[in-house]
C-alpha cells in the first residue's frame, strides 16, 4: 500500500472533470424539479445527448458544435416529455421511465454509424497566469471549456433562482401550482421552459462523456450517470450551491475508490460506492431544509 502515490492536487483536478457530466445533468434536473416536475428520464436524455454530440461534432468537425447539437438533442427529447406530462397530463414518473427506455433505443439507432469514430479534439484552456498559480492553478485552471461552463451554469442558476423575479415565479410554480395559476402565472409554459432547460443540460452532460471523457461513441455509454444525477439533486436539497458539493461527492467517490485501489489499498468497492446514496438519505432525514418543492411530481390542470 502506498497512499503517498496519490497526489491530492491531481485527485481534485480529475474529480472536477469526472463530476462534470453528472453536475450538468443534475443542474438541469434541479431546475425542472424546482418547477415542480419530476423527470426520471435524465439517463435517456443524457445518452441521446452523447450520441448527438458525436454526430454533430463529427459532421461539423467542431466540438463546440457537437455540444450545441447534444443540447438540442436532449432538449427535443425533453420536449416530448413536456408535451406528454404538461399537455396530455400523463403521469410524470411513468413518462420519465418510458423516456429513458426511448432515449436508450433512439441513441443506439442514431449512433449506429458512428461506433468507433473519434470526435474532433476538445482543447484544454490553460488560463494564462492563473494556471501557473501554485496549488489552485493545477486544480482549477487547467481544464477544458465545458468544466468552466458547468461551473458558470451553477452560478447562473443560483442567481436566477434566488435573485431574479423569473426565478421566484418558477419556484412559486413548483411550490404550489394552483396558487401560481391563480396569480396569473402561465404554469404550463414555465414548466415547458424548465423541462427543456433540463433536457439541454442533460444532453450537454452526456456529450461531455462521449466527446471529452472517453472520447468515442459506445451504446449505453452513460452507464447510469443519469440516475446518479437524480440522486445528486436530492442530496443537494434542491439548492445549486449544494449541488456542486453533491456532484463532487458522487463523482469523487468513484475517483477516490479507483485511486485507493491503484495505491494498493484493499477496499470494499461496493460499500464505498453505495455510501453517497446512504448519505443522501441521511441528508434528507436530517436537514429539514432539504424539503422538496411542494408540487413536485403532481399533475397540473387549470380547471375552472
Amino acid at each position: 500500500m502506498d497512499l503517498t502515490a496519490i497526489d491530492p492536487l491531481l485527485l481534485l483536478a480529475s474529480l472536477m472533470v469526472a463530476s462534470t457530466p453528472i453536475l450538468l445533468a443534475a443542474l438541469g434536473e434541479l431546475v425542472v424539479e424546482r418547477a415542480g416536475v419530476l423527470n426520471l428520464g435524465v439517463e435517456g436524455m443524457m445518452i441521446t445527448g452523447a450520441a448527438c454530440g458525436i454526430i454533430f461534432s463529427t459532421l461539423t468537425g467542431n466540438a463546440w458544435l457537437g455540444f450545441a447539437g447534444a443540447a438540442l438533442g436532449g432538449l427535443l427529447l425533453s420536449f416530448l416529455f413536456a408535451v406528454l406530462t404538461q399537455l396530455l397530463l400523463s403521469n410524470q414518473v411513468a413518462t420519465g421511465l418510458a423516456l429513458t427506455l426511448f432515449g436508450l433505443g433512439l441513441s443506439a439507432l442514431l449512433g449506429q454509424g458512428f461506433a468507433g469514430t473519434r470526435p474532433p479534439a476538445f482543447p484544454k484552456l490553460d488560463i494564462p497566469l492563473l494556471s501557473n498559480l501554485p496549488v489552485m492553478g493545477q486544480i482549477a485552471f487547467r481544464h477544458d471549456g465545458m468544466v468552466y461552463l458547468g461551473l458558470g451554469l451553477v452560478a447562473a442558476v443560483w442567481y436566477f433562482l434566488t435573485r431574479t423575479r423569473a426565478g421566484l415565479v418558477l419556484r412559486a410554480v413548483g411550490e404550489n401550482h394552483d396558487a401560481a395559476h391563480a396569480l396569473g402565472y402561465p404554469v404550463v409554459l414555465i414548466r415547458f421552459g424548465a423541462i427543456m432547460f433540463g433536457g439541454a443540460c442533460a444532453g450537454l452532460g452526456g456529450a461531455y462523456i462521449s466527446l471529452v471523457r472517453v472520447p468515442q461513441w459506445t451504446e449505453g455509454m452513460t452507464a447510469g450517470a443519469g440516475w446518479i444525477a437524480l440522486a445528486i439533486v436530492v442530496f443537494a436539497g434542491w439548492k445549486p450551491g449544494r449541488l456542486l458539493l453533491g456532484a463532487y461527492l458522487f463523482g469523487g467517490v468513484t475517483v477516490l475508490q479507483l485511486n485507493l485501489q491503484a495505491a494498493g489499498l484493499a477496499i470494499p468497492v461496493e460499500y464505498l460506492s453505495m455510501s453517497p446514496y446512504v448519505a443522501t438519505i441521511i441528508v434528507l432525514v436530517v436537514l429539514a431544509a432539504g424539503r422538496k418543492p411542494g408540487s413536485l411530481g403532481q399533475t397540473f390542470h387549470a380547471s375552472r
Binding site: I6, A18, V255, N259, A262
Partner: peptide, 17 residues
C-alpha cells in the same frame, strides 16, 4: 465495458506515475 469508468481508472493510474 464502461468507457467513462475506464477513462477514470486510466487517469488515476497515470496520475500515480
Amino acid at each position: 465495458l464502461n468507457p467513462a469508468k475506464e477513462a477514470d481508472a486510466a487517469q488515476a493510474l497515470i496520475e500515480q506515475g
